[in-house]
Design a binder for these strands. Sequence first.
DNA 1: GAAATAACATGATAAAAATCATATTTCGGA
DNA 2: TCCGAAATATGATTTTTATCATGTTATTTC
Lengths: 143, 143
Amino acid sequence: MLSNSSKYALKAVLYLANKTDESHKLMVKDLSEPTQVPKAYLAKLLQALSKQNIISATKGPKGGYYLTKENKENPVYSVIEVIDGNQRLEACVLGIDECNAQHPCPLHEYVNPTRTALLSTLKKMTIAELSLDLSNGASFLSR
Amino acid sequence: MLSNSSKYALKAVLYLANKTDESHKLMVKDLSEPTQVPKAYLAKLLQALSKQNIISATKGPKGGYYLTKENKENPVYSVIEVIDGNQRLEACVLGIDECNAQHPCPLHEYVNPTRTALLSTLKKMTIAELSLDLSNGASFLSR
DNA sequence: GAAATAACATGATAAAAATCATATTTCGGA
DNA sequence: TCCGAAATATGATTTTTATCATGTTATTTC
């Protein structure tokens, strides 16, 4: 459904969400372990997210990655969008460019409602909201 | 969401559904054009589907691919399953193996209901049912 | 202002997915 | 029974995704 890259990015961002802010940062290696994402690979993903202002970073000693208030207000979908682009979830299930409500592919009417619902959730819900369950112990990023 | 292979396979199977039966078959090249799928690639996909009895085939002159009554009663999902496997749509969105209702990932409760609905649709609906709209002119495989 | 530490930029390698090509088998018809 | 037409089996190539590695730049601290 999502690429590995998106999955990894989401895990890292959610982890950052309730562990960091402007004065509490984390380095790649501190993210790699709890999220189970290979360090070098994660580094590349974080750089991409940082460049698109989905997450924040400062270089040098005492530096690291973190999420500002504004970062935390971003929709969950923004992470997916930066990494996978928007076509992966939004394009026609059969990959037919001309598919739309007026000129639907055979799956359109069956798949679209639930797909739209999913997208709408991902676009409305913020990183902050989603990470709440995590801090409550109501959800988990690993065993 | 789906791999290119699955998209291609679905298009081909749906096309076969209302163009073929035991006495009307189609060759790869006759499927390649209307579905917009590269011929050699489609050939490989059809062979995989045939081997798993999702579609039927006969060799030699007057041969080709076709769908029997039984083939047409298969769920749409069976095509996806043969090509992509079941993990692509059924595994945890974040790729966390231990994720389940009792031990959910942060996205689980938000994504799962709609994902389950989607899967249930794909597993219930048969090829025959889905191809009806196509024969009505209510849906399309290309422009 | 030098040294250490962190992200950043870039590119190399590996694995998987997508695509193409070709020889082999099976079957129908002349 | 032989020829051609079709799927089948197999594998080669290309492209994309995933992964690893390393040199460069910015920033803090001494």
